[in-house]
Design a protein around this nucleic acid. Structure first.
Lengths: 344, 344
DNA sequence: TTGTAGGCGTTATCAT
DNA sequence: ATGATAACGCCTACAA
């Protein structure tokens, strides 16, 4: 049988209110009595108030939910996601907040009240199943969307358009040759590498990647060199091997591209490997620009030229926003910077 | 004002029990009535049973807690930890379990009952503050310790001793020169790189690293070449830069080591970089063996020879253990394998 | 198949 | 400074 606050109160001959106060509001009783209560609790093995009951009563859990766009596992595997989580957890650590990781499994959200699990939510990327968003918008708890926007919620983004524009502009200063783009999640529901020709693209508002594509193309257009869809590949996920494959296809095309604009560093790293395996020298024969600036990008040889997005800072900001520690502006857009290294 | 199950029942003219069943036990009422209830809920914007109240009543939360040894952030930054979490989340995804990340902040555990937050716990590495362990052992929920053991709890480990023994034995077949060890967390409370001479080491039972050291030394001893403490460096954390520093110190010593046994791949990767910056060729001038087999180890050039530990599988197993899906053995020890690549 | 009612363990309010 | 008591929102015997 488990001990409750009530048992302890009976044992000590005081009221439950007093015991509760001993644990939760030390100033409400004499430190003498408090000591006595705590000692007795220790002796009997009472661990402190039951968290569930406390949450029910208080209407707060001390937990912030992180709704993750992809399956949970993806978020532990992708360095971009982990750095974001890293930033979030830094703030939570300080604030004594616990972090509940919520995947995009829709069944989960259907069965019970989304609201009561956590005191607030960070929604990292647009969930696969849009019904989740309906649930979310019906909620009265603070919530922040990251890397996308949702009517009525505060949001946090980086300037994807500007970042991509920067990348393409820089690339144009280094070569006059053919250009190809290796895009990420440009096409809905694709499961393989392929050119985007003829396929319906995601809508620009919903997608980080479409904003990046827009940024690339605008810069190219300004130089009169906008790319037709045959020169744009789509990768369904940000993975090394997919970058490798896409780059291989691109580099086998005529005329052989001399600049690859990649929408993630992992894709870019794969592309570099593909080029090397084909005997091409980087940056002499081929220039590659990534996106994200993951740690590996810096100590890879040749080191990757890329667009830095402050994932860690983004995580910190997101955390501060849900916790109401940063109410200056409703929506926040962080800057993306060009980092010139060896690959372009 | 928030809607409750009771409101919904009143609105519909049915009892609360029926509404509850409509959500939680579909077989207890006619599908017709159930439809009607669900539709009304939808219309009124009732989101489903309040999770907190449900947990209090049922005594279950659908949440498993992950007690992390280090600060939360570390676990998102270290590839070894993230791959473990990746494995855990794979199983949780399937089983509809949510994952609460609990750092080693002791204040957190002191205020309230550890028990009621989650239905079970995975304790990943020995918590910094041992008072947490007291709380944990007082608990009646299932718990699994990973990478250490605790009286009375099921545990999951890899064979660190055997892995290290494998590494050292392999190294001995490749060189007769001087050997140095770059260790990890061998010394308590160290904050910098340094030789372990004169410093009190952690006790072997508590520490993964001491078991690895033991494995290295046994293999060396069998060849009559056990290392004195001057040839053993300690890094307080598994970080690239620390490996770089330690290796630099080691390689500046006389006689210059020809084999570096590193207790993590990140340390090893840093060591490789240090050697390269000193103009040494790997594996000709220097051989390096890592530990962990993180993804980068494979596509680094030269690719790293290392000991593979199945972090992902470890995560899966840990998850299955807490969930009671794997009750065959109380304690599990997974094998560590030697992966020979280019660096030794 | 549906309804009644007690209690899960706390905490906040109001007395004393 | 301490105590009595009514919620918090739900679930589950048990009864009808």
């Amino acid at each position: 049988m488990r001990l409750t606050l009530k048992d302890l109160a009976r044992e000590l001959g005081v009221s439950t209110a007093t015991v509760s106060n001993a644990f939760s509001r030390p100033d409400q009783l004499s430190s003498e009595l408090r000591e006595r209560i705590l000692a007795e609790a220790e002796r009997l093995g009472y661990q402190g108030p039951n968290a569930t009951a406390r949450s029910l009563r208080r209407g707060q859990t001390g937990i912030i939910g992180l709704v993750l766009a992809d399956r949970l596992q993806y978020n532990f595997e992708d360095p971009v996601a982990t750095r974001f989580l890293h930033g979030v957890s830094e703030v939570f650590d300080q604030q004594n907040i616990n972090m509940l990781l919520l995947p995009s499994r829709s069944e989960f959200y259907m069965g019970q009240s989304f609201d009561s699990l956590a005191d607030g939510y960070i929604i990292y990327g647009p969930p696969r199943d849009s019904r989740i968003l309906d649930k979310v918008t019906a909620r009265r708890k603070p919530a922040v969307t990251v890397d996308f926007n949702l009517e009525g919620l505060r949001s946090l983004n980086i300037d994807n358009y500007a970042g991509a524009h920067l990348a393409a502009s820089h690339g144009l200063t280094r070569t006059d040759g053919q250009i190809a783009i290796i895009g990420l999640r440009l096409v809905n529901g694709a499961s393989q590498i392929g050119r985007i020709s003829d396929q319906p693209l995601n809508s620009p508002e919903e997608s980080v990647s479409m904003r990046r594509l827009d940024g690339y193309q605008s810069a190219l257009r300004e130089a009169g060199r906008e790319l037709p869809p045959e020169w744009i590949w789509n990768a369904p996920e940000s993975r090394y091997e997919l970058g490798y494959q896409a780059a291989r296809e691109a580099l086998l095309s005529e005329p052989r591209p001399e600049l690859l604009l990649c929408m993630s560093d992992r894709l870019a790293l794969g592309a570099v490997a593909a080029a090397q395996d084909m005997g091409l020298m980087i940056p002499d024969d081929l220039k590659v620009i990534g996106f994200d600036d993951i740690p590996t990008a810096a100590y890879q040889r040749p080191a990757l030229t890329t667009i830095h997005q402050p994932q860690h800072e983004k995580g910190r900001q997101a955390a501060r926003m849900v916790l109401g520690l940063n109410n200056r502006s409703r929506d926040i857009v962080l800057e993306a910077r060009l980092i010139v290294r060896d690959s372009c």
